[in-house]
Structures are given as C-alpha cells and as structure tokens.
Design a binder for these strands. Structure first.
Lengths: 206, 206, 206, 206
DNA sequence: TATGAATGAGTATTCATTCAT
DNA sequence: CATGAATGAATACTCATTCAT
C-alpha cells in the first residue's frame, strides 16, 4: 500500500518534471500533452490519472514551487534578526531556488503568464502570501527604526519581487552563467537595503 | 493617395487597438482573429492585408510601443543633467505611458510572455535598447561620482525594469487606482537613487 | 445574392443526403463526420457552417422529413371524406414516402432511436403532431358513426404508427422488394379499418 | 462448487440488471462500462469475466429476454384453442412482461436499435422466432376459418409486433401509468382480432 | 475469481489562413 | 482594397480493454 502510494507520487513527480522541461522549451500553448507523456515515459491517458487537464499541470507546477519558496522563506527568516539580513536572505533564497533549475525559472518567469485569467485565479493566493512575507520584513525594519517609514511596504515588496524577476528573466533569456545571477542578486539586495535605510534619503523630499 | 494611405494607416491602428483590447481580456492564445476583426469592424480577411499573421499583431504592438518608449526616454533624458533626475524621469515616463492604458499595460506585462521563442526572437532587440538606455544612465552616474561604482549598470537596469514591471503587474492584477501606481513609482525611484548613491553603503562589504 | 443563398441551401441538402446514406450504412455513432464530409464533397469544417454539431445533423434529418410527412398528410386528408379512405391514405402516404428511400427509412426506423434523451427532447414535437393527425381521423370516424367508440383514438394512432413502423423495419432488415411493403401496408390498412368498424365487435365484450 | 457457480451467476445477473438500468437512463453509447461496474458493485475488470465486451452485454440482455418471451409465448399458447384467444394472450404476455420493468422496456424499444449491423446480426434470430410464433397463430386462424385468408400471416405478425412496440414506445416516452398500457393493449388486440375475422371485410375489395 | 492502474487508439471540433469574387 | 465562405491541419481528452498482482 505504502509502496503503491509512493509509486503513484513518483509518477506524478515524473510527469511534473517532464512538463517543466517541455514547457520551458516550447511554451505552454505549443506543448503537446503527448510530448509530456513521452518525455515522462507514460501513456497519454496516464497523465489524466494525476491531473485534471493540461492547465492543471501548469497550475500544479506553480503552486507546488511557490509553496516551497514561501515555506522556506518563513522558516529561514524566523532565524534572523535584522531587517537588512532578512532582505539579503530573501534574495539568496529566491535566486538560490532557481539557480540550478533554469527550466523551472523559465516556466515561472515566462510561461506562467499565459493569461490574466490564469494569473488572477490561481497564482494570486500564493503570490499574495509571498508579497505579505516580504512586506512584513520591510514593515519590521521600519518599526525597528532601520528603514525609512515613508515607503509603502507593499510597494517595496512588489518592487523587490519585480527586480528579482527581472534579473531572472534576463538570465533566462541570455546565456550568462548562474554565478552572475547570484552576484547581481547581491548588488540588488544592497541597493534595496541602502535605499530603504534611514539616512540621507529622508532629507530628500520626494 | 495621401488620404488613402491615411485611411489605411487608420485601419491598421484600429486593428491594433482592438487587438490590445481583446488580448488584455482574453489573452493571446484565447483570442480569435475573428473577434479582433469584429471589434475593429472589418472582415476577417482584411486583417491579413495589414499583418502577416496573428503573431505579427502581437509583435507589432510590442515593437510599436517599446519603440515609442525608447524614443521618448532618449529625447527627455537628453534634456536632463543629474543621474538622480534621470532615474526619476525614467520611472515617470514608463509608468506615465501605461497609466492611462491599462489594457496596454496588461498586454505588455502579461500577454507578451507567450513563449520564450517569441521573447528571444522579437522582443529582445527593443528590450536590449531599453536596458542600454537605462544602463547608460547608471554608468554616467557612476562616472560623475553620484553613484557607487560597485554595481553592474546592466544588473541595476534589469532590476529597475523588473521593479517597475512588478508594480505594473500588481496594479493590473488588482484594482487599485493609477495614482497609487504613480506614488509607488516615486518611492521605488527613491529607493534606487538612495540605494545607488555614494555613501554609507560602500562601507558595507557584501 | 439569390444564387448564393441557393448554393448554400444546395450544399446543406447535399450534406443531409450524404449523412442519410452514411448513417444508414454505419449507424449514427459509428459514422465519422469526416466521412459525411467526404461523401458530400466538402471539407470537414464546412459541415459546421451548416450544422451546430453531429447531433444536429440527425435532428435535422428527422425534423425535416417528419415535417414533410405531416404537411403532406394534412394536405391530402383534407381532400377526402370517409374515415376509412383517410386511414388508407395515411398508410399509402407514409409508406410511399419511404418506399423509394430505403436509406432514409433505415435512418428513421433504426438510427433515430439513439437515446431516449434525443427522442424525448427533439423527436417528440413532430411525433406528437403526427399522432394528433392520425388520432383526429380515428375520432372523426367515431363521431360519424363509422368507427366503434370504445377505442382510444390515441392508442389506435400509436398502434397504427407502430404497425407501419414494424412493417418498415422488417422491410429494411430483410431484402424484400418495396412492392411487397406496399401490399403489406394495404392489408394492415384493411385490418385496422375492419377492426375499428362498427359491427360484430361491439357485441364482443373485452 | 455449486455455490460458486451460483455466486457467479448471481454476479452476472447483477451486472445485467445494472446495465439495463444505466442503458435506460443514458443510452447504450453514452453508458460507460465503469458506470455499470460501479452500479453493480464490482470492479471494471470483473465485467470482462462474464461478458466478452460492451456489445455483448446489450446482446445478452436482448437474447435473454426475447428467449424468455418466446418460451413463455409457446408454453401458454399451447394451452389455448381459438386463434382470437391466442392473439389476446400474445398481447397480454408481451405487455405484461414489460409492465413492471420500464427500464427493460426502454432498453428493448429504444436502445436496442443502435445499429442495423447489430440488429441484423444478433437480434434477427430471436426476432424471427418471435414473428414465426405469431405468424403461426394467424395462419392457424386462417386454416380454422376464423381469420380471413387474404392477409399475409407474416405481415400481420410484423404489424402486431409493431403496434405493441408503438404502444410501449409512447408509454416509455410519456408518463402514463402502466394500467393505461394494458387497456390500450386490449383495444389493439380487439382491433386486430376483428380486423382479421371473417366477415364484412371480405366483401370490401382492396 | 477479482481488482483497478495503466494503456493508447480514436475523433469531433476549432480556427488561422486563403482566395474567388 | 475588402470580403467572408471554405478549407483542413491539428490535438486534448475519453474510455473500452488488458494484465500484473
């Protein structure tokens, strides 16, 4: 019984991995379900024993991974003290999760945005939790006096997400190595930390 | 003759506007050419007198608008002096261009990413010119001593683009008004300017 | 314009004729839409310019023909006087309509009964009008004193329809010629006329 | 062993009963084998231990029941003398067999006619025996001088079958109670008996 | 006998594109 | 330039059947 469950989960995972690979290469709409099946080494019909339909595969990829990311963020951030350290950790966790998985990065940054309907309906919950986690870090920094209070935590969270997404996108589109991605991430982390820090900025009226 | 050309251009523009509207509502792959035609008030076949195929419509939307954006950036940035002013202007131009055109913003931030093939092949040139323009502003700031030299101009450009894209995305997905988008943009501009400015940051080893 | 309309109607009729032929040979569920198209000499997609879907083709065959039958029945019955003559005419019209069209007869008697849902939803109206027409003839015969009053006109109508349907079914399943069908029809007409006529029967209590 | 055989037969019967129920509700082609299995409380694969394939289930329903009907007809008719009594008994046996089993009636009158191939190949033998039994009654009536000789016994048999089938069809499609079906059957029996009886009819030239 | 996970052949329908008018 | 009827390639999904357990 336990073995059967394991085998079933294995097969599901194999299908997901294959889908990530093919989606990354061809894009969601240009991917044939039969090609995912072939790549996973199962029959076409088997796909439908584990997923409701083709859309469900893409949705599962996203919710699985964003869930992992959010869990990891919460777990590690709880162990840190300063807001600056936390921001730096957010960057390293997110980029670290994608570094070794260019295919996944491609699916997340590119293929996921297939339709606003899809984004609004399925991606929103996980995305919101993600923005909440980051926003809370900014807010804590403001309350502890580390960060300037004249910035919307939510806006900063969106911007940080977008900045990392932008780095990932150009990494995926280009051919630079993943070390460069990490270094760029560190620089962006510094920009945000310094840009948010209490100091000269507060003297500059917007 | 001139009038006919004008009429032709008018019709082309009407088709583009209709496509933006429908793409924004349904997404690229769920949009029927016949629906664009109906919205534009022309026959299905007429579309193909102005565009090679359905892909060409999306490509035209992007290249038209990114070209306009790039031209506008170059024109206005040439009139300014300080790097900080230029960064601020980049933000206001880009968000200003999308503020009144939520449909267009939706197409640009969401529907454009239909396939990596598409992005790599068609979007890359305009996107690269855009990143070059921003990157040059950062570089100038570093050369003039305004900005820290320990940041890759390219990475900063990607991050700034991504941050603005992230703001736009959440604006499009949510229901907040466009004023809030502008205010968030100003805050992000300040974060980047302060984050890049020479100061305490350079003392902080990464 | 008139010519175009004519051409369109022609094509629709050609598709219907082809469908009758293929349905008769293979049955509804074993008929491929592509085979109807090939037989009609049109492209697969063209079918869907004239019919909503495969079901709609079968429905159209039935409603077209039962409508013709009902119209013809009402037209001719109005010219006759006695109930017996009318019953005889009903038989000759119905069988006459199918005699030369074995394929159509096959579709009507066999393939039409694909699902109770189909029968109840689409066939019922035309079928009811048909039963009403026959039932009214029986009733008139009773009111004029030609037919016994102790028979439900509706039941007699159902039975007459069924009897003719039974003859048609065995004709279609077997290989007998159509003259034999007509002769059998005449005999059945006589059975019903005599069986309904006022006479010894009324003395026989059921 | 005997018990096992019994249990096997029980299971087979349970599958048949479930199939009748589901076929009646959904029609043959819209019925999933898995639904029959679920209704019968067995696994999908178990069906194939008792039936060759899905077609075989429908065929078995028909041959089982028509066999029962034919056996019952022969048994009871042997106990009767007059042709009229026999005709009346035919009607009451056939309708009596279906009265309490609307689902079965639905399958027999509607779902059975799925394809001419099916009807010709499998239904024909049992159907022919049925027509022979009835035809022989008519013929005996003619030989004994009860019935007119100018009617083909086979045609009369087809017509009687069809008439009863027509009554059953309208009963199944409509919502009238089964008593009404029986009364209609009695009236139809009288029509046929009187219509076939030697008398005034022979004076009417066809 | 019984199971039910896995198979993979099979098809109605859509829709971008063409071209005769 | 403009039309829109006709085309036909292309594919997600179903479900009868099998077979290892």
């Amino acid at each position: 019984m336990a073995q059967e469950k394991t085998r079933g989960a294995e097969k599901r995972e194999r299908i997901l991995q294959s889908a990530i690979k093919v989606f990354a290469r061809k894009g969601f709409y240009n991917t044939r379900v039969s090609e995912i099946a072939r790549t996973a080494g199962v029959a076409d019909g088997t796909i439908y024993l584990y997923f409701k339909n083709k859309d469900d595969i893409l949705i599962s990829i996203f919710t699985d991974r964003i869930g992992t990311l959010n869990d990891e963020l919460e777990r590690q951030l709880a162990t840190l003290q300063g807001a600056s350290e936390k921001v730096q950790r957010i960057v390293s966790i997110q980029l670290g999760l994608l570094r070794g998985h260019k295919d996944l990065a491609e699916v997340i940054t590119i293929n996921l945005r297939q339709s606003n309907r899809f984004l609004k309906q399925y991606a929103a919950p996980g995305f919101n939790r993600y923005l909440d986690i980051i926003g809370k870090v900014i807010q804590e920094g403001q309350e502890s006096g580390d960060f300037r209070p004249d910035v919307s935590p939510r806006a900063a969270a969106c911007a940080l997400f977008g900045a990392l997404d932008g780095l990932t996108l150009t990494w995926v589109l280009g051919s630079s190595d993943s070390d460069r991605l990490s270094r760029a991430g560190q620089q962006v982390a510094k920009i945000f930390i310094e840009g948010l820090r209490i100091g000269a900025a507060s003297e500059t009226p917007s």
